Computed example of a mutant assay.
Amino acid sequence: MHISADSFRARFKEDEAVREDPDVQTAIRGIEEVDEKLQRINKAREDILADRTLNEAAKKAEFVKYVQKADNKISNKISQVSSIVDRRTAELNKVINQEISDEAGSSRYSSEVRSHVASLPHASDRISFVKKLVDSGEYTSVSSILGAPSFLSGLDEKHKKTLLDYYREKRFSKQIRISKAMERIGQSMLDKTTMTTKFRKSIEDKGTLKDLEAQKRRIEAMAN
Rank of each mutant, 00 (worst) to 15 (best):
S4M: 00
E16F: 10
E16Q: 10
E16K: 15
A17C: 09
E20K: 09
E20P: 09
E20S: 13
E20I: 05
D21W: 03
P22E: 11
D23A: 11
V24C: 01
V24Q: 03
A27G: 04
E32Q: 15
V34E: 08
D35S: 12
D35G: 11
K37Y: 09
L38N: 04
L38R: 04
Q39I: 07
R40Q: 12
R40D: 12
A44S: 13
D47K: 13
D47P: 05
L49C: 03
A50G: 07
R52I: 12
L54P: 11
E56F: 15
A58T: 05
V64H: 03
V64R: 02
V64Y: 01
K65E: 05
Y66R: 00
Y66G: 00
Q68H: 09
A70E: 10
A70R: 14
D71H: 12
N72Q: 15
K73T: 13
I74H: 00
S75Q: 14
S79G: 10
S79K: 13
Q80H: 11
S82E: 06
R87F: 11
T89E: 08
V95H: 09
N97Q: 10
E99W: 03
D102C: 03
D102P: 00
S106F: 05
S107K: 09
R108E: 15
Y109I: 09
S110M: 00
S110T: 05
S111I: 10
V113N: 08
V113E: 12
V117L: 06
P121F: 06
H122Y: 13
A123S: 14
S124C: 04
I127S: 07
F129V: 02
K132M: 07
K132A: 06
L133H: 08
S136P: 04
S136T: 06
S141I: 01
S141R: 12
S141N: 07
V142C: 03
L152I: 01
L152W: 06
G154C: 02
E157M: 07
E157H: 02
K161I: 06
T162K: 13
G186A: 05
K192M: 14
T193V: 11
T197L: 10
K198S: 10
K198V: 13
I203P: 02
I203L: 15
E204N: 11
G207D: 00
T208Q: 07
E220M: 06
E220P: 02
A221E: 13
